[in-house]
Simulated assay, not measured.
Amino acid sequence: MPETTTTRSISEAAHELGLTAHTLRYYEREGLLLAPVDRESSDRRRYTDDDIAWLGFLRKVRSTAMPIATLRRYVELARAGDGTSAARLALLREHRETVLARRAELDDALGAIDIKIALYSERLS
């Protein structure tokens, strides 16, 4: 019995991922998918489970403000195969340090906001 693969239209994929169809098309144009998206005979995109998993990863990494150029480099390395694992690890470690530094900045800013909230709350009590 042949194995069936669940696919989704661009609107279904966008909804599932919490992205817009425009963003999905943009990621495709920028070459951020591991493989070309399947298309129906009518040329409509069909996203597989693997596409959804990859796009979910992209969404998370983009939410950390990874630049598109860096993400594109990561995708190129991923496409090149297991021989690039060390380079991908280095890229992700470097980005992790950037995210941690940004988080420290945000924690500092949040502390300043909390001080002001406490001050106003005390005045209004």
Rank of each mutant, 00 (worst) to 15 (best):
T64M: 06
L17N: 05
V99P: 02
L34V: 06
H22R: 14
R72T: 10
A80T: 10
T98D: 03
P36Y: 04
L17R: 08
G83Y: 10
D50H: 11
A104W: 03
D82T: 07
S41L: 10
S85Q: 07
E40D: 09
T48C: 06
D50R: 12
M1P: 10
E122F: 12
A112V: 13
T23Y: 08
E105D: 14
T98M: 07
L106A: 10
D38N: 12
T4E: 12
E40L: 09
A104Q: 13
T48R: 13
A86G: 02
E30P: 01
P36R: 03
T84C: 05
D108Q: 12
H15M: 12
E76Q: 09
G111W: 14
D38F: 06
G111E: 06
E122V: 02
R102G: 10
V75K: 05
R79P: 00
F57L: 15
L17D: 03
G56S: 09
I117E: 13
A118R: 13
A86V: 08
L119Q: 14
R62S: 12
R44T: 03
P67W: 08
R88Q: 07
R88V: 08
L33S: 02
A101D: 13
L24Y: 13
E28S: 02
A14C: 07
A78H: 06
A65K: 15
E16R: 14
T98W: 04
D114W: 04
E76Y: 02
Y120N: 00
T23A: 15
I113G: 11
H15I: 05
D50Y: 07
H22S: 11
H15W: 04
A14M: 03
Y26Q: 01
A78S: 11
I117C: 11
M1D: 05
I68P: 04
R96N: 05
D43I: 07
R102I: 01
A87L: 14
T84V: 00
A14V: 02
M66N: 12
T7W: 12
R93F: 00
L124F: 11
R93P: 00
H22L: 11
L32R: 00
H15Q: 15
H95P: 04
I117S: 12
A78F: 03
W54F: 11
R29C: 06
S9K: 10
E94F: 10
R79K: 12
K60P: 00
T70P: 00
T4P: 00
L119D: 15
S125L: 05
D43W: 11
D82S: 08
E16L: 13
P67T: 10
R29N: 09
I10E: 03
A101C: 08
E105V: 00
L17Y: 14
A65Q: 14
L100I: 09
R72S: 11
D43E: 14
R44H: 15
